[in-house]
Design a protein around this nucleic acid. Sequence first.
DNA 1: GAACCTTGTCAGGCACCCTGACCAGGCGAC
DNA 2: GTCGCCTGGTCAGGGTGCCTGACAAGGTTC
Lengths: 163, 163
Amino acid sequence: MTKASEKPATRIPLSGLLDVALEAMLGEFRTDLGDSAFQDIRPTHGCVFRFVRDDGMRLTKLAELAHITKQSAGEIVDDLASRGYVERVPDPADRRAKLICLTDRGREAQTFGFTLFAEVEKRWMERYGRERVEALRETLEDIASHEAPEAVPELHRPELADV
Amino acid sequence: MTKASEKPATRIPLSGLLDVALEAMLGEFRTDLGDSAFQDIRPTHGCVFRFVRDDGMRLTKLAELAHITKQSAGEIVDDLASRGYVERVPDPADRRAKLICLTDRGREAQTFGFTLFAEVEKRWMERYGRERVEALRETLEDIASHEAPEAVPELHRPELADV
DNA sequence: GAACCTTGTCAGGCACCCTGACCAGGCGAC
DNA sequence: GTCGCCTGGTCAGGGTGCCTGACAAGGTTC
């Protein structure tokens, strides 16, 4: 069908496709979250729920993982603290530092968020095919573990799933 | 290897993987662009080069495609115009409207940008396997054409490649 | 204990995008 | 025609999210 005189093959950039897919997925997530008991959680807050685990995390570490300055991270944590999702507890190992810890409500929100993401992914499997979405995930996991290993610690500490 | 007492399977959200991959890809692109003759092009400008074609585009249409307000689109276009990448020409079909058109330099930048994206994708093929990256693209094209068809007109007007 | 590094905060600023108000031009009803 | 309404674009003002710079308090090294 194509003729020799067609344009010099400017395919849509892969980054554009990644962007559309990401926005679509986040759109579904935010819609679901907006219908939930955690409506006051904004996109910026995501980095906290994404990286902070039950043993808490220092502000500097969070900023490093999220690729933002500690000042920015501080603002985000302040905001989440004022809403009752996190609290700063003194770090027993260093009197300068504080550990950012999820409150009970914060942990609820975190669990709810992860569950929501799993549901969205399940919907996508129904929509686009289980095999394809799983292949998508596997390739992206490989890419992510090479491009930003520190941002996906889950992929490098599988032993955390044991014991 | 895994025991029955492991955590309740909280895989890293697919959106997180998409985000890491997107940022990595844009990072390579921006690094390359920063080394080029088009250093003054900022991320925000991307929507113009992404959507405007040789026949120009109205501001309202651009805003709609990029999912921003026409005020925001106006600012971006003003900025690109001050740098000599675009110009507003009166729309012969409607005396209220102006067509945002790429200048010669703008077209150079657009072509350069698309070429750069193609090069980054080629590097990823070498890094992660041609088949896998191509499968990634195919799945993402399918997703994008369902989730935001208006943002990827290339996928719905294949006849543009002919004649 | 002096010099230096690290943790976190305060102050100020900029990029980017928004809402609201508005004008000029097009368009249909009468 | 011209009245009312819609549309394309701009102006004014504001807010979020991030930044740089400066700094105090505590840890670390010698």
